[in-house]
Design a protein around this nucleic acid. Structure first.
Length: 592
DNA sequence: TCAATCACG
DNA sequence: ACGTACGTGATTGAC
């Protein structure tokens, strides 16, 4: 890379003249109370500026605000790498970055979901340039690591200016990569608009009932103490139940419970739920172990962990959505993950009661797509039978059972429905007869017959599976309804196991990915309409097929109508009806 | 740092 | 003969 000029301060006027500029923010750290240490800007390759900000928040805000005209300029493309991070930070300084925006990380993800999107990796790969590692400034992470604040101006200027410069230089590269996969439309109509939505959601956070969780933690602790002593008594030894290695040895060596499962990679006994559950009639300790597992999981991952993640400045929990993580196009959520809050067991779903409205003027509102993946399968495959079932508004699993088992809808038993449901789900993952048999606890010949019947009754689906794999073999990728691509490098592998995995990905990804396209579009349309109407309600979370809101009590009907309409019409013209379930309550559990 | 396990869609 | 359902993130123990 050419040398970089580093001048002190750019004037905002200079930025305002630029058609595009890259920008990056240096902060005091990565924790939730971080503050801006400085801003860097690049308007042309090899030239970047750094603007240090004082420690005092009010003084820093004055400096940051000076750049608001540029960051909100309707003509200048604001380029960033993971720009959501910077945009979210600037919201704390009352600056809302406006379109047009461009994110080199998100663009790179659209070009290829699999390869690494980190700036230093991309600089190396596309610019042949190795950036200064952050460790050179602040040291390795650990107790002696410095804050950006402590780094001297010359060093931080070099580092920050370099990041802005690299980002600006990456843009033409990612532009080309995106154009090579015909991803411009996906990027401009979904992924970039979505950045604003996610920024607002993350910034908003969600209210958490901490006293409720504190109480619940004590309840769980008391239960755990009892279960633990029961386990020790039954096994005759005290050991670490949390250690799968020790647990396996105690159950299957010391206690000699008959073991039929396979061994793990490391040669240990498997003690996962699917191995232990069938053994519950062999020894009464098994149920206690399963109970213990459930409660420790709830306590350590959710009940005790969530309160610690309440942001002291806002009093709310702010997740970070990953827009460039999932190979299929889905979002991910971390720190904390709010997309895997328990719901399946009674004691787990209690935790949802801790997710509460902002204050007494609000309620929690949840809207979720009904059977979205199956509806998308019906739409993509155009299978007549499945489309008809949805058009008639039938219970899709019962309807499937009726066809597969050859009985009238009214004669479908709960066991038939259960099996049909398992096939419907397994189908979207490319499950084999073996997998279905294992899942349902039936013989392989039985499961094979069910699958054969299924494909005979739903020929459009069989055809889709064959054709999708062929498409992937020819092109090396699959695509979603909105033309999102996932490359499948192993689709023509000579290793049958590896190849089979790629084939399952080929079948599943268009389905999972199209559902992701749909809810992302709905989020953008809902968000923009809420802004236009200047609503007090706020979108808070997305959980793959569900959107969660803080609902202002005065807006109940408006928001329900709006969300239902935008979710149903996100992708217009589908041959299948889209249904949305909605609920309102005093917490997330009640809103379901 | 990895493996095992389990929470969700 | 082989392995066998997709996509995530967090916690714990073990090395």
């Amino acid at each position: 890379m050419s040398k970089r000029k580093r001048t002190g301060q750019p004037s905002c006027k200079k930025l305002l003249k630029a058609n595009e500029f890259a920008w990056d923010t240096e902060t005091t750290g990565l924790e939730d109370t971080m503050e801006i240490v400085g801003l860097s800007f690049a308007m042309k390759a090899g030239e970047a500026y750094y603007v240090p900000c004082p420690q005092d928040f009010k003084e820093a805000k004055k400096i940051v605000k000076e750049f608001e005209p540029a960051l909100t300029h309707p003509k200048a493309i604001k380029v960033g790498h993971n720009i959501k991070f910077d945009m979210k930070l600037l919201r704390n300084y009352d600056v809302i970055v406006a379109d047009p925006i461009y994110d080199t990380m998100v663009a790179h993800y659209v070009a290829d979901t699999h390869i690494r999107h980190k700036m230093d990796v991309m600089a190396e790969a596309y610019l042949g340039y190795t950036p200064v590692p952050i460790e050179e400034l602040i040291g390795k992470r650990g107790k002696n690591q410095l804050s950006m604040q402590d780094v001297d101006l010359e060093q931080i200027t070099e580092y920050a200016a370099e990041d802005a410069d690299i980002t600006l230089q990456l843009k033409p590269i990612t532009d080309k990569l995106v154009s090579e996969v015909e991803g411009e439309s996906l990027l401009q109509t979904i992924e970039f608009p979505l950045i604003h939505v996610l920024t607002a959601m993350e910034h908003e956070g969600i209210n958490l009932d901490v006293p409720f969780l504190t109480d619940y933690s004590e309840v769980l602790l008391k239960d755990l103490v009892k279960i633990k002593s029961k386990i020790y008594k039954l096994s005759g030894v005290e050991f670490n139940i949390d250690s799968p290695k020790q647990l396996g040895d105690i159950l299957f060596e010391h206690m000699k419970i008959p073991y039929e499962g396979g061994k793990t990679k490391t040669g240990q006994y498997k003690t996962s739920e699917d191995v232990l559950s069938p053994l519950s009639d062999k020894h009464e300790i098994v149920d206690h172990i399963l109970n213990y597992r459930e409660l420790t999981k709830l306590k350590s991952t959710y009940v005790d962990a969530l309160p610690a993640l309440v942001n002291p400045n806002t009093g709310r929990v702010h997740t970070t959505f990953g827009q460039t993580i999932a190979a299929t196009g889905r979002l991910a959520s971390n720190n904390p993950n709010l997309q895997n809050i328990p719901i399946r067991t009674d004691r787990g779903r209690e935790i949802r009661k801790a997710f509460i409205p902002r204050d007494e003027n609000f309620l929690i509102f949840s809207a979720d797509y009904s059977q979205i993946e199956l509806r998308i399968i019906a739409a993509i495959t155009q299978d007549e039978g499945m489309l008809e079932a949805f058009k008639r508004g039938e219970d899709i699993h019962a309807s499937t059972a009726s066809k597969v088992f050859g009985v009238p809808l009214k004669d479908v038993t709960s066991e038939m429905r259960r099996r049909a449901k398992a096939v419907n789900f397994g189908l979207a993952y490319g499950q084999s007869a073996f997998g279905l048999a294992q899942n349902l606890g039936i013989s392989r010949s039985e499961s094979k017959e069910i699958i054969d019947n299924y494909f005979a009754q739903f020929p459009g689906i069989k055809k889709y599976m064959t054709e999708t794999i062929e498409f992937a073999q020819q092109h090396g990728y699959i695509e979603t309804i909105m033309k999102r691509r996932r490359y499948l490098r192993d689709i023509n592998s000579k290793n049958p196991v590896v190849r089979a995995q790629a084939e399952r990905n080929a079948i599943n990804s268009p389905i999972q990915g199209s559902a992701a396209d749909m809810i992302k579009l709905a989020m953008i349309n809902v968000h923009n309409e809420m802004l236009k109407k200047k609503m007090k309600s706020r979108m808070l979370l997305q959980v793959h097929d569900e959107l969660v809101f803080d609902l202002h009590k005065s807006e109940e009907n408006t928001l329900k109508d709006l969300v239902e309409e935008k979710m149903k019409t996100a992708i217009p013209g589908l041959p299948v009806p889209i249904e949305v379930g909605m609920g309102v309550g005093i917490n997330w559990l009640e809103a379901h």
